[in-house]
Design a protein around this nucleic acid. Structure first.
Lengths: 226, 226, 226, 226
DNA sequence: CATGAATGAGGTTTCATTCAT
DNA sequence: TATGAATGAAACCTCATTCAT
């Protein structure tokens, strides 16, 4: 999972006492805050510990080194997002394409924006070479879920499922990131636009199912499923 | 352009002599290589100088500090991409939408993949908070160019141009990055897929121009313009 | 040579400039001084650098880590001693036993007492598990030299050469160390006593050579060869 | 006994209860084990406590600090050895030299090899400057005992008793340590060789007692007294 | 009393930057 | 100008010791 010869990025121990839980959480939150205010390059274990109100030593009780701390924070975030999307996908097997798209987009965007700051902070971490496999695994997990869902669409099927899933996911990632990082134009409605984007794309590449009626997703208003 | 209180990230002098040019180029290339092999966290000025075959002192002749080096390398890359896209956009004002999309995608993807390694390396740098405004500016430049172009489409017009441009750009960025970072499924054709994605999206949101014929872009084969 | 997985204990680079030579020597000497005044446990790289009048950074230019510094200091000492003894042994092949013993003892004791402080300091280092192989190698080197010499004695030969050599060496080591560490009774003459000890032992285990006259070494006064 | 300004290296309390005894012993053994497996530099109180199966807190109930723990472990070992040798010496006053030597060597070697691992482990501790006086005292104790014994030899007497005692002791120490640390040649019989060494030396420096018969100790086979 | 989480001084090491040569 | 040794602030991490539970 990590480069050979480097120390384990796994957390050192699981907290048993109440005090421990406090420490672990405080460190987690402080990591996000320091990332946002100082950036990855200026994130130091001391600064994180200070911000968390604990000693460096306490931090090192739970994370054997800096990498493992960042690893853990990133992993939790990616797992959360991946899980949200997976569940949404599983819940909408055998639905029409339009429904699938709309639910997928919402689950993804909601997971990202619910913890907006966390998301922003972790873009900084995920860029690092060391995080590549963590990000890679989460991506794979998500686009497997999308693939499985699309395979059961009631009104369409696809020649190149993995590619379609990959495109949908990575096409959602781009605009979402831009919005979170503050580069979007005013009064832009991310969810709406992503639904349009994905739906348009999938309809273009879908092979319509015999006897079913594939029409523009615009008709399926987002509010129908909110 | 940079944070107040920090020294200028501008190169210290512009090379006029042959040796200088050599040094600057060697340093540029070395920076990319070190980023790819060691990551941003392990990039040190000494390592870059070593890889470039020059002394640290020489490196500091051209860049007053590490930030300015990374800044310069990133800027060159972003400028190159922005310029490519801008030119493509300018060259295709007043064309049909399908042509615009296809040319836009190619210019962007070509710029990114022509220097594939450079692109990959600089994803590491661009994540840094320090680079936010550089990236922001390049993005703005690009989506202004896209906006201007789309405004002149011979066969469509748009209600929300800035948003459309933003979506097109960020939707291209996501899959391109994933492909460059190696997470794409095999036999995936990036250009083709991006054209499909953008064209489908734009056609969905476009208001057809009276008397013009908006049809799927698939008809305008990519090879027509290669 | 060292435990697997640990970083090389080899010096990082060989000094080329005059300044470098100064630094390296200063660090060497400072290491001995700090060992003597503070002990191994309180020897820190910072303290060594301070005592040497250079910066920590300079120290780390020549030794990649603390271990390699101690390793180098110990190695130089052991090599010096081993070489002295080896040369003495080689120079006295084919001599009578009494001469051999006397020359061997002198070479060993002289090497140790010429750099008395260094010797004392390095007893602290050589105890460490990490130094075991360094010490082991030097010992082997020395008792090979002793073996070879004893094998050519003009007036005796031995059944168990390796054992004899081992006993002679380790029997010299004990009293020498005690004397250097200050535990010896006053007016003790180390050289004289060691000669007596070794000569008595060897004569006891030697098989007298036909036609030669093995008599107590006491007759061969030390001053004859001084 | 200890350096001024440092806290007492004496154990904090003497264990009276069964649990206490268990803890203290477990800690003692664990200390030896950690020394052997990790070395002195990597011996930490936590590691010792873990190995002993007790909490750090419990360890600090019995030893106010790390030094006092090492001090206690070393002291116990040295006391044990010193006592063995003292008793052997006292038991053999007024015997012939050969008997004295043989009994002395056996008592020393047996004490050292009975707890071979402990001996090896404590060579690491005894090197430390902090332990110098502990080692010094034990040595003095032993060579006083040897002196006293030698003074009563039935068949010899000595001009420089303290020196003779010092030489005998330190000459035993060298080979014994080498053997324990694994540098001895195969099939070497330590006891036998040390008897030969010491006996040869003492006979060389002894002034024969009028009317007594000083002959080589080799005649007094070791097995006579085993 | 025992536990083990927390503390934080202090150790090791790195690396951006300077400056004598 | 180019070099690369030197600098030293600052990063990472450890571990002896304490103390709330």
């Amino acid at each position: 999972m990590s480069l050979p010869g480097t120390r384990s990025p796994q957390p050192r121990k699981t907290p048993r006492q109440a005090r421990s839980v406090f420490t672990v959480n405080a460190v987690f939150d402080a990591t996000i805050q320091v990332l946002l205010s100082d950036g990855l390059q200026r994130l130091t274990t001391t600064r994180v510990a200070d911000r968390a109100g604990v000693s460096v030593g306490a931090l090192y009780q739970y994370y054997p080194n800096k990498r493992s701390l960042l690893h853990a924070v990133l992993k939790r975030h990616l797992d959360h997002v991946a899980e949200s999307v997976e569940q949404a996908c599983q819940r909408h097997h055998r639905q029409p394409l339009a429904v699938m798209v709309e639910r997928l987009v919402c689950s993804f965007v909601d997971a990202k924006t619910a913890r907006q700051e966390e998301s922003r902070a972790l873009y900084l971490v995920s860029a690092d070479l060391d995080s590549a496999d963590l990000v890679g695994k989460a991506s794979k997990r998500i686009y497997s879920a999308i693939s499985s869902m699309l395979a059961t669409a009631s009104d369409a099927h696809f020649d190149e499922l993995p590619m379609a899933a990959f495109m949908i996911l990575s096409a959602m990632v781009g605009p979402t990131r831009s919005v979170l990082e503050g580069g979007a134009p005013p009064k832009m409605l991310l969810r709406e636009q992503l639904v349009t984007l994905c739906d348009a794309y999938l309809n273009r590449i879908a092979i319509p199912e015999a006897g079913s009626d594939v029409r523009p997703a615009g008709d399926a208003s987002i509010s129908d499923h909110e």
